[in-house]
């Protein structure tokens, strides 16, 4: 583009509209890595948790530790993507904020699940109270206060950023994944924690793994066509 050529008002308008179009069509292409990783990790945790409970496997391993460990590769992926990015659109910036808030919310909720039983017991005991559970035969046993159906709550949170991203980017697989997630959430209201775990795994697969794989395929195709 030459800067010395004289231009009239129409030329100016042409440059403006041309550049705005170019900026619009140059969104950073999401390669799906994060979605695939989280879909696989949470999907595995959910299905493994279900199998462990259903078949009563005697394995002393909390599968959700994997979700915590997955933060490490996520940080690496985030840094790498930031380095490779040449443009940041307002839409991407807003989406990044949505996913950041999601990350904070999910960990705040997991923290809540872990703290509430202990804190409730403490508060009750300070007031000289204790929760007990009465069985149908009249037996009484100490009851540890837990958040009821915690995996159902997690599924509501899973669907939120996926649906926002799907609607904003007009990416149907994510919208469908989020809808599936809400359906699994509704089913989980009527099932035991064993089945909730399976639903949780399926929700992660529908919500992230499948859309992530579709994104990855699109990304690789786009990259291939650019290098041909």
């Amino acid at each position: 583009m030459d800067n010395t050529v004289d231009m009239n008002e129409r030329d100016s308008l042409k440059i403006i509209s041309e550049m705005i179009q170019k900026a619009k069509g140059s969104h950073f292409h999401e390669n799906g890595t994060s979605a695939i990783m989280w879909g696989a990790v949470i999907g595995f945790c959910g299905i493994f948790g279900f199998l462990k409970r259903y078949y009563q496997w005697n394995i002393d391993f909390d599968e959700w530790t994997l979700a915590l460990l997955a933060i490490i590769p996520q940080i690496y992926i985030g840094i790498k993507e930031k380095r490779n990015r040449t443009v940041l659109s307002y839409e991407e910036s807003a989406m990044n904020a949505v996913w950041l808030v999601y990350g904070i919310s999910i960990f705040a909720l997991v923290f809540y699940f872990n703290i509430i039983p202990y804190a409730t017991e403490q508060i009750l005991s300070e007031n000289g109270r204790k929760l007990v559970m009465q069985f149908s035969d009249g037996r009484l046993e100490a009851y540890e206060p837990n958040a009821l159906s915690p995996l159902s709550l997690l599924m509501i949170i899973y669907a939120f950023p996926t649906l926002v991203t799907g609607i904003t980017r007009k990416f149907r697989p994510m919208v469908l994944g989020a809808v599936a997630c809400y359906i699994f959430y509704l089913i989980s209201l009527f099932t035991t924690q064993t089945w909730d775990s399976l639903l949780n795994g399926l929700a992660a697969i529908g919500n992230w793994l499948i859309p992530g794989l579709i994104l990855r395929t699109k990304y690789l195709k786009a990259r291939k066509s650019m290098h041909v």
Partner: peptide, 8 residues
Amino acid sequence: SLLIGVKE
């Protein structure tokens, strides 16, 4: 014109 449409 390019920068008006993106954050950076």
